[in-house]
């Protein structure tokens, strides 16, 4: 049984594309056959994060308009050979694909893949509606700040309206010092408001930016804390129960450095 997962957020720039790339690589590292579909038409950058920009021949629009079959447009990853990318067009806009196109495409691709992961554009307009149409699971990415959590809340509402009930949460770019000082929402606040199952807490980590520039998602960097967090997310997606670290109330700072590697 293959699974179709959409990565969405509402607010832009919170880490959807980063999450898509890392989960994709992580699932492929476990031997799954994975396809990533970029639906952020006009602003594509999933190919950049995967270091595949120069290999793109055809795109999503070529496929949905019937010009080429999807397997011609799929780009295989250099290192992880069970990972494929279906890039999108940089010149067309989001209305070039509609929900039915994507449902049909995913239906066709299902037989070839264990996971299909869809990177969604920001916002709740047409592009969002198209991206979520085929999914049987949605992952909402947010950041520990009020505006991102409000948008996540709205998106969860929209997903519910579209009958998407299997919704998971990832909180990205957590900065423990700021949380500790009360300058950032903590997980308890976020869970209380959003009240959906959280499968990941990813720290803010320079290694993510370094990884982006190298075209190799951070999950492949063994010693990075964000990479570790993504490994845990992939484990949870595969049904493993990996506990979350709960920061102790006192003496947290002293232990912070040592604990960091097992934090998330």
């Amino acid at each position: 049984m293959s699974q179709i997962i959409v990565i969405t957020s509402g607010k832009g720039g919170v880490g959807k594309t980063t999450t898509t790339a890392n989960i994709g690589v992580g699932l492929a590292m476990r031997g799954n056959k994975v396809a990533l579909i970029d639906t952020d038409t006009g602003l594509r950058n999933l190919d950049l994060l995967l270091g595949l920009e120069n290999r793109i021949m055809y795109d999503l629009i070529d496929v949905t308009s019937g010009r080429v079959p999807y397997n011609k447009a799929l780009v295989r990853h250099k290192k992880h050979d069970s990972l494929y990318l279906l890039p999108t067009s940089q010149v067309k806009d989001k209305s070039a694909v509609n929900p039915d196109d994507l449902i049909k495409l995913c239906d066709d691709m299902k037989k070839d893949f264990d996971f299909i992961i869809i990177d969604c554009p920001a916002g709740i307009e047409q592009g969002f509606k198209t991206a979520i149409a085929a999914a049987d699971m949605a992952i909402v990415v947010t950041m520990p700040e009020i505006s991102a959590v409000r948008d996540a809340d709205k998106i969860i509402g929209e997903l519910g309206r579209a009958d998407k009930e299997n919704v998971k949460l990832i909180v990205n770019r957590i900065r423990p010092q700021m949380v500790e000082k009360g300058d950032m929402l903590d997980m308890e606040d976020i869970n209380e408001i959003l009240s959906i199952d959280c499968i990941g807490q990813v720290p803010d980590d320079e290694a993510v930016v370094m990884a982006t520039n190298r075209g190799e998602p951070v999950i492949a960097m063994k010693d990075s804390i964000a990479g570790k967090a993504y490994l845990n997310i992939v484990g949870r997606l595969c049904g493993e129960s990996i506990p979350f670290f709960k920061p102790p109330k006192e003496g947290f700072f002293a232990k912070l450095k040592r604990l960091f590697s097992m934090l998330f």
């Binding site: 409000r150 809340d153 509402g157 519910g160 209380e192 408001i193 009240s195």
Partner: peptide, 25 residues
């Protein structure tokens, strides 16, 4: 029987009982 999320609205002529949160917005 659900959380009422930002942007959503519940209207009723009688009383309402909500098993969930009523979120900002």
């Amino acid at each position: 029987n659900k959380t009422v999320r930002g942007g959503q609205e519940i209207r009723a002529e009688g009383s309402v009982m909500i098993f969930g949160n009523v979120n900002p917005g």
